[in-house]
Amino acid sequence: MTDGSSGAEGLVTYELRGDVALIGLNRPDKRNAISDRFVQAIGAAVTRATDEAKAGVIHGHGPHFCAGLDLSEHSEKPLFEAVKGSRQWHRIFDMIERGLIPFVSALSGAVVGGGFELAASTQLRVADTSAFFALPEGQRGIFVGGGGSVRVARLIGAPRMGDMMLTGRTLGAEEMERWGGVSYVVPEGEALTRAVEIAARTATNAEFTNYAILNALPRIADMSSEDGLFTESMVASLATMTPEAKQRLRDFLEKRAAKVQAPGNG
């Protein structure tokens, strides 16, 4: 089901393909640079996807995923408005990172500044070979405000993030994969197709397990080892008690579910 333009002034498109919702950044003439209104439109689409789908994909229309913050808007903001805008980005990106369904980002062209912050809020990132990554805040006289100091730093490490911000260094998809910021690298033009395939696969998982991966796993990473292990035991026990888990385990034991295969064998 395609719903065309959605959100403020058509800044975001929305499409439902089976159990997967596709959310498209739709400002290609500006390389999908995002503003507060744009983030609000993303939030509305994410809320809808959570209600209608079991997984989501975020992609950019045109050759670029997102070239970051719309500096023409940001440069005119009073101080407290800038604080409130940043906190809105945090709330909406947190809906993606720690919500109810997994999200995959399909990355091509510019994945810069706020665009990288948005991609970092998704659980999986598929980049084609045209994708390039940068954090030019040092050169702009600003600082990341969309959660990058937490999410991007945890993906690639604070020293590497600091390198990108201090020097304006640009990385390609394969190098960013080596750094841990990209989950999959595919040929140019294939990011969206692969992202939809991966999202569809995650949509077949047990809903409680997906929820636990999105919400328990990052919290456990923030805990001490002992607290993390205790929390793991609680979540693991809850997961096995769900009716869906019981049925899936019966299916496996009674040979109605496939065994795990080595890479390339299924």
Rank of each mutant, 00 (worst) to 15 (best):
S6L: 13
L16R: 12
L25M: 09
N26R: 00
R27C: 06
R31C: 10
A41M: 07
A41G: 12
A55E: 07
G56N: 02
I58Q: 03
H61F: 08
L69S: 09
L71V: 12
S72F: 11
S72Y: 13
E76C: 08
F80V: 12
V83F: 10
V83Q: 06
G85I: 00
R87T: 09
Q88W: 03
W89S: 10
W89N: 06
H90V: 09
F93D: 01
M95I: 04
V104R: 01
S105H: 01
G109W: 01
G113D: 10
T122D: 06
T122M: 04
A127D: 05
F132Q: 12
L135W: 00
I142T: 15
V144H: 09
G148A: 02
R151N: 10
A153T: 08
A153H: 01
G157F: 07
M161V: 09
M165K: 02
T167L: 04
L171I: 11
G172P: 05
E174H: 10
G180S: 01
V182M: 02
V185I: 03
E188L: 08
G189Q: 06
E190A: 13
A195D: 05
V196K: 02
F208N: 05
T209K: 10
L217N: 11
P218V: 06
S224P: 01
G228L: 07
F230Q: 12
T231A: 15
V235D: 01
L238A: 15
T240D: 15
T240L: 14
D251L: 05
F252H: 11
L253I: 08
E254L: 14
E254D: 09
K255N: 09
R256P: 04
A257F: 03
Q261V: 12
Q261C: 11
A262N: 08
P263N: 06
